[in-house]
Amino acid sequence: MSKLGLWGLKKSPWVYHVAAASCNNCDIEILELLTPRYDIERFGMVLVGSPRHADALLVTGVLNRKSLPRVMEVYEQTSKPCLVVCIGTCTCNTNIFRNSYNAVGPYDKYLPVDVYIPGCPPKPEAMITGIVKALSKL
C-alpha cells in the first residue's frame, strides 16, 4: 500500500458494521459511539453504508449457519487491506451460545481477525481503544 494511502487510512478509517446473529447490544453501543457523548467522528471515523467503502469491518454477534456465507461475502466485497475488529465476547469465543446447533464458531476460524474486544457488551470506551489499537498495527 502506498504511503499516502496508509496515512489516509490511519487518519480517517471508514468502518462498516456487520451484525451476524447478535443480540443488538453491541450494535446499539456502536451507534452510541456516533452520538454526542462519545462522538468518534472527531477521530475521523465514519460509519459507512457500503462494505466497498470500508477500511474496517466491525463484526458483532455469534456467527450462525445462515449468516456465515453473507458475512464472508461482505468481507470479500471490502477493499483490502481491511481490518476486522471483533466486538463482543460472542465474536471472540461464541460466549453462552457455544452449545447451540446453529452457532458455527468464532470468527477467527473464517476471517483474519486483527483485534478482539471482549465484553458483553464492551463499553464504548473499550471499543474506541480497540479500534485505536487496530490502527496502530498498520
Binding site: N64, N99, S100
Partner: peptide
C-alpha cells in the same frame, strides 16, 4: 439470520 437456538440451550 439471527437464530441462535435459545430454547435449545
Amino acid at each position: 439470520y439471527n437464530h441462535r437456538g435459545h430454547e435449545f440451550i
